[in-house]
């Protein structure tokens, strides 16, 4: 039930993010979620896209530095307390989240949380055991 996230190295240089999105647009790839971690001289662009394999190939062809990361994606009700509940399950099991970002799926009135967890497989087992709805690669990318 792991999902694929693309990470792209970006120098802090004007227009680099625009370049990435342009390349993806030209190849009909849809970005589902996007988050940038930045430092003073570089950034890491993290994305969930609809066609991860194709996106990786295309970005590489265009000289971007891309890596693939397994992340855990969960679907939550878009209401107070949903995230808190999940985080306490992870915390109770001593699972640390390295980073996390969310987006809304308005059609389904749901929130999707993407989490980078060191031990993703164990996190998935535990979350499933706790009745959390997980999104696998397919559900997520084709969402």
């Amino acid at each position: 039930m792991k999902a694929t996230q693309l990470s792209v190295f970006l120098e802090n240089k004007q227009g680099r993010l625009a370049d990435v999105t342009r390349v993806l647009a030209e190849n009909d790839i849809n970005i589902r979620a996007l988050f940038i971690a930045d430092t003073s001289d570089f950034g890491i662009l993290r994305m969930i896209v609809d066609k991860p394999r194709k996106a990786i190939d295309i970005l590489k062809e265009n000289q971007f530095t891309v890596s693939e990361t397994d992340v855990v994606a969960v679907e939550l009700l878009d209401k107070p307390g949903s995230l808190a509940k999940i985080l306490s399950v992870l915390n109770d099991n001593s699972l640390n989240i390295e980073y996390l970002y969310c987006f809304l799926d308005t059609e389904r009135n749901a929130a999707v949380d993407i989490m980078r967890i060191e031990d993703a497989s164990r996190a998935i087992d535990i979350l499933q055991g706790a009745g959390v709805k997980l999104l696998g690669g397919d559900d997520l990318h084709e969402l």
Partner: peptide, 15 residues
């Protein structure tokens, strides 16, 4: 230049 094989999604690792 960062080598592709070395690049990761973690800021800490690059730092």
């Amino acid at each position: 230049e960062v080598n592709e094989r070395f690049f990761s999604d973690r800021v800490r690792q690059l730092e």
